[in-house]
């Protein structure tokens, strides 16, 4: 799994952080998404897919 994020699209809703806190965080200065792990372990894949699905700004792209 390869994750890319689009900071320009991110609206800082934080849903990804709730769903996959080991993969996503929010920047201290402005709350925009921070990708902690672009190629997470298989154990994280379901959570990452869920984060991409519920991201309101479609800022998370997942390639598998």
């Amino acid at each position: 799994m390869q994750i890319t994020i689009d900071e320009a699209k991110c609206c800082g809703a934080g849903q990804c952080v709730l769903v996959a806190p080991e993969v996503f965080d929010q920047r201290d200065e402005d709350g925009i998404v921070v990708l902690l792990d672009a190629t997470p372990d298989a154990g994280q894949h379901a959570a990452v897919r869920e984060a991409a699905t519920i991201c309101p700004a479609a800022a998370i792209q997942v390639r598998e």
Binding site: G12, V17, Q26, R27, E29, I32
Partner: peptide, 15 residues
């Protein structure tokens, strides 16, 4: 919208 919302996004972020 983006410019203004980002000024207060950090105050409501998860952490």
């Amino acid at each position: 919208h983006t410019r203004l919302r980002r000024m207060v996004t950090r105050d409501f972020m998860v952490k």
